[in-house]
Design a binder for these strands. Structure first.
Length: 280
DNA sequence: CGGCAAACCTGCGAGC
DNA sequence: TGCTCGCAGGTTTGCC
């Protein structure tokens, strides 16, 4: 499910229930996620207070009062939801659950188990292998044309592939890569190193805008994404190209013919949606 | 380094 | 109704 806006939506939804609260009970019902939940996970998290719920790229991070940090990634199908919204903590794919001191139950549910929950000890987060090499946050004010140009300058891969590479920048997935390239009018086939100057400026602006708008809309609910309260995001209604193969291009209104309309191609095994007339 | 395919795992919709 | 196929928002690994 989750790219940066969806993870940020989850963070915002859960923060009021977690920040400043102690975890009085932690249950691991299934530990064989993408990387195994550590054996001592429940013991190390129980009776710790959550100081801060924050996000790095697509990772949700729960900083605990002993300096350790719970690391969660939702993979393709993961959810972190408040119990009671169709999830009770006992379901087939309810793998980990947390209960806070005021009786709130939060459940990590992930049918495909591409997600993970683990824990970094005090001081270990910065060097944690999952996070250490991650690129900059696209919504950081310091993320600008110069930063993105420097990150892309050495990359001969396509710009679409570069956007999906979490070492280049953090949090972009297939949907927002397609949407940002459309807004920036850049061909997904263009070499990443060819995105500099004005193109880089347009791309930075497009990324910031599409991510911000998506967060404001509560993310995109296609198959799996739910807000922590069970509610739907609705940014999917604002997609310009993603999943719109065969439709007229909303930018130039070109219709489906030799050169126009929204087309789908496969890059690196992932679908790319684009308008070859508008994106160069 | 790059590009690609496959692997991880389950569910869903389309088509027959 | 029921089966098979293809596809899915992510990431890693291995091969050429």
């Amino acid at each position: 499910m989750p790219e940066l806006p969806e993870v940020e939506t989850v963070r915002r939804g859960l923060a009021p229930y977690l920040e400043g609260r102690s975890l009085v009970r932690v249950d691991v019902r299934r530990a064989d996620l993408r990387i195994p939940v550590p054996r001592d996970f429940a013991g190390r998290a129980t009776n710790r207070r959550v100081e801060r719920l924050w996000r790095r790229g697509k990772y949700l991070l729960m900083e605990l009062d002993d300096g350790a940090t719970i690391i969660a990634h939702l993979g393709m199908s993961g959810r972190l939801v408040l119990a009671g919204n169709g999830v009770n903590g006992q379901g087939r794919h309810d793998h980990v659950s947390f209960e806070t001191e005021d009786g709130t139950h939060i459940v990590f549910n992930d049918p495909r188990r591409f997600g993970l929950i683990t824990l970094a000890g005090p001081g270990d987060l910065e060097n944690h292998p999952l996070l250490a090499a991650m690129g900059p946050e696209p919504l950081d004010p310091a993320f600008d044309g110069a930063v993105i140009s420097a990150a892309l300058r050495t990359r001969s891969a396509s710009i679409k592939a570069a956007l999906l590479d979490q070492h280049v920048m953090a949090g972009i997935g297939n949907i927002y890569a397609c949407e940002a390239l459309f807004r920036a009018r850049i061909s997904p086939r263009r070499k990443a190193k060819g995105v500099a100057g004005q193109r880089a400026e347009r791309l930075v602006l497009a990324l910031k805008q599409v991510l911000t708008e998506a967060i404001e809309a509560g993310g995109s609910s296609l198959r799996d994404h739910r807000r922590p309260d069970g509610g739907l995001g609705y940014f999917q209604h604002s997609f310009a190209v993603y999943g719109r193969e065969g439709e007229p291009c909303p930018g130039c209104n070109c219709d489906r013919d030799e050169t126009g309309g929204i087309r789908r191609m496969v890059q690196g095994g992932r679908s790319t949606f684009f308008c070859s007339r508008r994106q160069r």
